[in-house]
């Protein structure tokens, strides 16, 4: 059984069918790419997956469990974590605290425990610190732990966003244009990071990307969208040589 199964997913805004009859199956451990021209509905699919929008039709199954239309916070608890096209960090919090917010649902103590500083507070906080530092180390950010997130350079902010997403211990990671705004060197570094994350955490990854070098470099399978619908899908090499895809991107 596939880890993520989307069937006949659709949503329309007013008269516009932003996503229509969208199907995809992702197996555990795959690195799957979702590509398509601007406005094809890729990010809308992500928003439907994470409960930002409620679909008009279709079902989403994660690991056999129906998560269609659940609220964002519950979707996160079910095991989907995401990053955003335009970076969304907690700017005024330190790098360490950003990751600790990601750990929020995995290490619990009550508000009263926090205010009264009971022993459980110190115990849990130090466990959270250890866990967060470990994640930061993986991304080479441990030296920046006390910096404010907004003071990090762009590439490191991207990495921090991935670290924060991983802190929720997801079974599926969604990356929305991770290479947007990066120079070629940073993109190469990012490709290595994504590969590394997949091996280190045994992660299934679905990513949206425009950078074809990144897509052909790391994705095993692709789904191409155009005008809200699936244009074609399959192995990366085949898809990228498909005349339909070339037409969609470059025109006749």
């Amino acid at each position: 059984m596939a880890l993520l199964e989307i069937k006949d997913l659709g949503i329309s805004f007013g008269g516009l069918k932003a996503v229509d009859d969208f199907n995809v199956e992702i197996e555990k451990g795959e690195l799957y790419g979702l590509i398509g021209p601007n406005g094809a509905g890729k990010t809308t699919v992500f928003n439907l997956l994470t409960g930002v929008y409620k679909p008009d039709s279709g079902t989403i199954k994660l690991d056999g469990r129906d998560i269609t239309g659940l609220k964002t916070a519950y979707v996160s608890k079910c095991g989907i974590a995401r990053t955003f096209q335009n970076i969304r960090l907690f700017k005024k919090l330190s790098v360490l605290d950003n990751v600790k917010v990601g750990l929020h649902n995995r290490f619990e103590y009550s508000t009263a425990t926090g205010i009264l500083r009971l022993p459980k507070y110190y115990r849990t906080e130090s466990e959270m610190d250890d866990e967060a530092f470990e994640l930061l180390k993986v991304f080479g950010l441990d030296g920046y732990a006390s910096h404010l997130a907004q003071n990090l350079p762009y590439g490191k902010q991207r990495k921090l966003e991935i670290a924060r997403a991983l802190a929720t211990k997801p079974i599926l990671l969604l990356l929305d244009e991770p290479a947007a705004g990066m120079n070629p060197n940073e993109t190469v570094e990012l490709m290595e990071t994504i590969r590394f994350v997949r091996e280190q955490f045994d992660m299934t990854i679905l990513l949206i990307e425009h950078d074809m070098r990144l897509v052909s470099g790391i994705c095993e399978k692709l789904t191409v969208m155009n005008f809200g619908q699936v244009l074609t899908f399959g192995n990366t090499d085949e898809v990228l040589n498909d005349p339909q895809v070339i037409t969609a991107y470059l025109g006749e």
Partner: peptide
């Protein structure tokens, strides 16, 4: 004490970016 606890972090996360806070399950 509230600010420097799990609850305070969640509250400040909401302040800084509501959508991102929701996406990590707050």
């Amino acid at each position: 004490n509230l600010i420097h606890s799990r609850t305070g972090r969640a509250v400040m996360a909401i302040r800084d970016n509501r959508i991102a806070a929701e996406s990590v399950g707050i």
